[in-house]
């Protein structure tokens, strides 16, 4: 264990560099660069608002903010896990030749997505201001759901990265899973329309609780109840530990499949 920590410390500069490189790579050759991190969720919000406003407008006040939050949370999850999934394979040439802590690759990608997601919070603030939602101290509690989401995504990213080394089919399969997750998350519909009997199924989706928690603190100014924290922490532990475990157990065999 001690050896792992000293190794982590030794390579920490590499980790930061990888995160920086990932962000740079993402916006390479695009004119607007990092602005896309703000524009993308905004434009998505506009589209979804126009499409769904007629359907749900009366049930959801501040529909634009509602959609934007759902979108940001889902976008982070899908982008970071997808990006992490490919990371080991993409860096195969390197892993074959030099020793580097392999978990750096998926984790750096999750972290870089996390940073760009924070950029996406700027337009969220702007939209809140425009639509007349007032800012409160409780808003700062958004850090809780963000943190839970980060760990959950990192865990899932590690699992996917490991699986993807052995089975390239995972990529195609995962795009279907992501779609299911998207519809299971109340991004553009009110959570209340979910029939009671499906709730246990919906609760399997960690994003459900996280999105709700996020909206509680940002839109309704409510401190999230103890139960939802507990659910998130449980998910965080399950995925975090499972991710590390799967990755740790399989990493020595990556090299034969790259």
């Amino acid at each position: 264990m001690n050896q792992y920590l000293s190794n982590l410390f030794k390579y920490k500069d590499l980790f930061f560099e990888l995160v920086r490189k990932d962000i740079k790579l993402k916006y390479r050759n695009s004119v607007l660069g990092i602005l896309w991190s703000m524009l993308n969720p905004l434009l998505m919000m506009v589209v979804l608002s126009i499409v769904f406003a007629t359907l749900f407008k009366h049930e959801i006040p501040h529909f634009a903010v509602y959609v934007l939050i759902g979108r940001i949370v889902y976008q982070f999850f899908s982008e970071s896990t997808n990006f992490a999934m490919d990371s080991i394979y993409a860096n195969g040439q390197l892993i074959k030749k030099v020793y580097v802590p392999k978990y750096f690759f998926p984790l750096s990608r999750v972290c870089s997505s996390f940073i760009t997601t924070f950029v996406a919070l700027v337009p969220l603030g702007a939209v809140m201001l425009v639509t007349g939602l007032s800012f409160r101290w409780v808003n700062l509690m958004f850090l809780f759901p963000m943190f839970y989401l980060l760990i959950i995504s990192a865990g899932i990213g590690l699992i996917l990265a490991a699986i993807n080394v052995f089975f390239k089919d995972m990529k195609h399969f995962y795009s279907i899973i992501l779609m299911v997750v998207m519809y299971m998350t109340p991004i553009f519909y009110p959570a209340s329309i979910i029939p009671e009997k499906y709730m246990p199924l919906i609760m399997l989706n960690p994003l459900y609780t996280i999105v709700n928690m996020f909206r509680d603190v940002m839109m309704y100014g409510v401190v999230p109840d103890f139960m939802s924290h507990l659910i998130c922490i449980a998910y965080m532990l399950i995925y975090g530990v499972l991710g590390l475990f799967v990755f740790y157990k399989t990493q020595d065999r990556f090299i034969y499949h790259l």
Binding site: Y11, D13, L14, E17, L94
Partner: peptide, 12 residues
């Protein structure tokens, strides 16, 4: 040099 040095575990 900078990238490779980091890969070898040198600090920035």
């Amino acid at each position: 040099i900078k990238l490779n040095g980091l890969l070898l575990g040198y600090s920035k």
